[in-house]
Lab assay of single mutants.
Amino acid sequence: KEMRNAYWEIALLPNLNNQQKRAFIRSLYDDPSQSANLLAEAKKLNDAQA
């Protein structure tokens, strides 16, 4: 469930391009235990690109 939530949050971040989203989501599938960390990194990048 945590992975699914992280997937959708990443997919809906407005300032990431599709390539960036795909990279984060690929990492999510590679290591679901890192969901919270990956989401935090994606949000950080999203904010930096705002």
Score class of each variant (00 low, 15 high):
Ile25Met: 12
Gln20Asn: 02
Gln20Ser: 03
Asn5Pro: 03
Leu39His: 02
Asp31Gln: 13
Ile10Phe: 03
Asn37Thr: 06
Ala23His: 12
Leu45Pro: 00
Asp30Ser: 13
Leu28His: 01
Tyr29Met: 11
Trp8Asn: 12
Ala11Tyr: 14
Trp8Arg: 11
Leu38Lys: 06
Asn18Asp: 08
Asn17Met: 05
Arg26Cys: 06
Leu45Thr: 07
Lys1Asn: 15
Leu12Val: 09
Ile10Val: 05
Asn37Ser: 06
Leu13Met: 14
Glu9Trp: 07
Glu41Val: 09
Ile25Arg: 03
Asn46Thr: 01
Gln20Trp: 02
Lys44Thr: 09
Ser33Glu: 05
Ala42Arg: 00
Ala6Gln: 07
Tyr29Thr: 06
Ala6Ile: 10
Ala48Leu: 13
Glu41His: 12
Lys1His: 15
Asn18Val: 08
Phe24Ala: 03
Asn37Pro: 02
Lys1Glu: 15
Ala36Phe: 10
Pro32Thr: 03
Gln20Ile: 05
Gln19Ala: 14
Met3His: 08
Tyr7Phe: 04
Ala50Ile: 13
Glu41Lys: 12
Leu38Tyr: 08
Trp8Thr: 06
Ser33Asp: 04
Gln19Leu: 11
Leu16Asn: 00
Glu41Leu: 11
Pro14Trp: 05
Asn17Lys: 07
Pro32Gln: 04
Gln49Asn: 11
Asn18Gly: 11
Asp31Ile: 06
Asp47Gly: 10
Ala6Asp: 03
Arg4Ala: 10
Pro14Asp: 06
Ala36Trp: 09
Pro14Val: 07
Leu28Ser: 01
Gln34Met: 15
Asn15Arg: 04
Leu39Cys: 03
Ser35Leu: 08
Glu9Pro: 02
Asp30Ile: 14
Tyr7Ser: 09
Lys21Arg: 10
Ala48Asn: 13
Glu41Pro: 00
Gln34Val: 07
Asn37Phe: 11
Met3Lys: 06
Ser35His: 12
Glu9Leu: 03
Phe24Ser: 01
Gln19Glu: 15
Leu13Lys: 02
Asn5His: 11
Asn46Asp: 06
Gln34Asn: 06
Glu41Gln: 11
Ile10His: 00
Arg26Ala: 10
Lys21Leu: 03
Arg26Ile: 09
Lys43Val: 09
Ser35Pro: 02
Asp30Asn: 15
Lys43Ser: 05
Asn37Ala: 04
Leu39Lys: 05
Leu45His: 03
Leu12Ser: 12
Lys21Met: 03
Arg4His: 15
Asp47Lys: 08
Lys43Ala: 03
Asn5Gly: 12
Leu13Tyr: 05
Ala23Lys: 15
Ala50Cys: 04
Ala50Gln: 10
Glu9Ile: 13
Leu45Phe: 05
Ala40Leu: 12
Ala23Leu: 13
Ser33Met: 14
Glu2Gly: 03
Arg22His: 09
Ser33Ala: 11
Tyr29Phe: 11
Leu28Val: 07
Ala23Cys: 06
Met3Cys: 07
Asp30Arg: 14
Leu39Glu: 02
Asn17Arg: 08
Leu38Ile: 14
Ala50Asp: 09
Arg4Thr: 14
Lys43Asn: 10
Ile25Trp: 07
Ala11Met: 09
